[in-house]
């Protein structure tokens, strides 16, 4: 564990039935840095974020955030820890019954006693940061996917979290929105002094802004290092993933019985 770690995951174990998500996973997130956790689809990256946020309880191991082991916290302590975290959901998860303004104001109104004028100033400044101050009165149904993602980002940073987590922030975005979101993540991390964790399988954009990268597969960290170190890695996993090669340790086919047996079983 680094002396300036905000989050340390140690010997993490978790599975959904036979599907292993974490099998002795160790991850260290350094304060103030952007760390990306990459891996093939279905490796449990989103579940990992949910374990950090205390929404999913690991079967064993530690998820130590600012010195406190998240799975050991009681409900009140967990809620207190979450106040300093932000999570950008893959599906944006905006409250459909509230306007853009009220969505961003939601955490501020819930956790502070600020006057409505002050709430308004804060909300508009967050919306300005994501370039959507002009959309404050729109409803979530009136937003494009990229706009919804940016509103969700404004809401996630409303209380200036110390740890910001992004779940697949680039998925389903057009190139312009993708570049805007990439720039925003970097800008927010540096200007607000946050620590960022990006979960993604978008190699190009995620590595461009990351200080450190973890590559996970089959419940373990299979490679880690700076983006440059990872590019030079000789690990077959890292090579296949970063170069998008179809052949390698990660199989395209879901485990199945022999193809010929399946095809001709009924004939015999």
């Amino acid at each position: 564990m680094s002396s300036d770690s905000i989050l340390t995951i140690k010997n993490l174990q978790f599975s959904y039935g036979a599907r292993i998500i974490a099998d002795g996973m160790d991850i260290d997130i350094e304060r103030g840095k952007i760390t990306t956790i990459m891996g093939p689809s279905g490796t449990g990256k989103t579940t990992l974020l949910r374990m950090i946020g205390g929404q999913v309880r690991p079967h064993a191991g530690e998820v130590r955030y600012e010195g406190k082991n998240i799975p050991d916290l009681n409900k009140d302590a967990l809620l207190a820890a979450r106040k300093s975290m932000g999570l950008l959901f893959q599906a944006s998860a905006l409250f459909t019954g509230l306007s853009v303004f009220d969505n961003v104001a939601f955490p501020i109104r819930e956790h502070t006693q600020l006057s409505e004028q002050m709430v308004s100033h804060l909300v508009l400044s967050k919306l300005e940061a994501v370039g959507l101050r002009g959309a404050a009165e729109l409803m979530p149904g009136e937003l494009s996917g990229g706009m919804a993602r940016r509103v969700a980002l404004a809401r996630a940073i409303a209380l200036d979290p110390r740890l910001m987590m992004y779940d697949e922030p680039f998925v389903g975005q057009d190139p312009i929105t993708m570049s805007v979101i990439t720039r925003l993540i970097k800008l927010l991390n540096d200007s607000l002094g946050m620590t960022s964790i990006i979960v993604s399988h978008d190699v190009h954009d995620a590595m461009a802004i990351s200080d450190f990268v973890y590559l996970i597969a089959e419940g373990k960290v299979i490679a880690s290092g700076t983006p440059e170190e990872l590019r030079q890695s000789e690990s077959p996993w890292a090579r296949q993933f970063l170069r998008a090669e179809p052949d390698g340790p990660v199989s395209f086919q879901y485990p199945a019985t022999d193809y010929q047996t399946d095809l001709f079983a009924s004939v015999e």
Partner: peptide
């Protein structure tokens, strides 16, 4: 639509 999950993550 993960609205309840997002609320949990906002400590609500």
């Amino acid at each position: 639509t993960e609205q309840l999950s997002s609320m949990e993550m906002m400590a609500v």
